[in-house]
Measured scan of single mutants.
Amino acid sequence: KRLCLVCGDIASGYHYGVASCEACKAFFKRTIQGNIEYSCPATNECEITKRRRKSCQACRFMKCLKVGMLKEGVRLD
């Protein structure tokens, strides 16, 4: 089984260019469509796991980008 490159949960397929789970796919889409900017309360190096993926949105979004999710893949309509 493929794992989500962002949080390590089971991937539902390839989304925005990267093997990812439904939760991270939806999080990435919401962030881009809403043009949301997050800031990390710590040092921008929070560990993102299935259990902790909700704890820091800034680091989760940075990890989405780091593993290769493409903003261009999100439709803005």
Rank of each mutant, 00 (worst) to 15 (best):
Y14I: 13
V67E: 09
P41S: 09
C46K: 03
C46F: 01
L3H: 14
Q57M: 07
S39E: 15
C40G: 02
Y16Q: 05
S55E: 15
R30M: 05
A23M: 14
G8N: 01
E37V: 04
G8R: 07
V18S: 05
D77R: 09
R52N: 08
A58T: 04
E22G: 14
L3D: 14
E72G: 09
C24N: 00
N44R: 12
C59L: 01
G17R: 04
K66W: 03
K50R: 08
I36R: 07
Y16F: 07
I36D: 11
H15E: 11
C7F: 05
G34Q: 15
R30C: 03
V74D: 13
E72R: 05
Q33V: 08
P41D: 15
C21I: 02
A42V: 08
R53E: 13
P41R: 08
S20M: 06
P41E: 13
C40V: 02
S20V: 15
L76H: 12
K25L: 15
Y38K: 02
E72N: 12
S55Q: 15
F28G: 02
L5M: 09
F27T: 02
R60Q: 14
E22I: 04
D77K: 10
R60A: 11
V67D: 02
A19V: 13
L76Q: 12
C4W: 00
R75L: 12
V74W: 10
T31W: 00
C46S: 03
C46N: 02
P41F: 07
I10C: 11
C40D: 00
I32L: 05
E47S: 07
M69V: 02
R52C: 01
C24H: 00
D77F: 05
Q33D: 10
E37M: 02
A26N: 04
S55R: 15
N35M: 06
L76V: 13
G8L: 10
V67W: 02
G17D: 10
R60G: 04
L5Q: 10
G13E: 02
M69K: 00
M69H: 00
Y14T: 09
R52H: 03
R51C: 01
A19S: 13
F27Y: 04
L70Y: 02
E72I: 06
N35S: 09
L3R: 08
E22Q: 10
C40K: 01
G68E: 02
G68D: 06
S55D: 15
E72S: 11
V67C: 11
A19G: 03
F28D: 00
C46E: 03
T49K: 11
R30F: 01
S12V: 13
V67R: 05
S20Q: 12
V74F: 08
C64I: 04
R51W: 12
T43S: 07
K63W: 03
K66C: 05
R53Q: 14
R52A: 11
A19M: 09
R53K: 12
E72Y: 04
G73L: 12
K71R: 11
C24G: 00
C56G: 02
E45P: 03
N44S: 09
V6I: 14
V18D: 04
E22H: 10
H15Q: 10
C64Y: 00
K63P: 00
R53T: 13
V18C: 08
I48A: 08
K25W: 15
V74K: 09
V74T: 09
R2W: 06
G17L: 03
A11V: 06
A23G: 15
G8D: 10
Y38G: 05
I36Y: 07
G68H: 02
M69E: 03
F27G: 02
K63R: 09
M69R: 02
R2G: 08
S55V: 15
R53A: 12
Y14A: 14
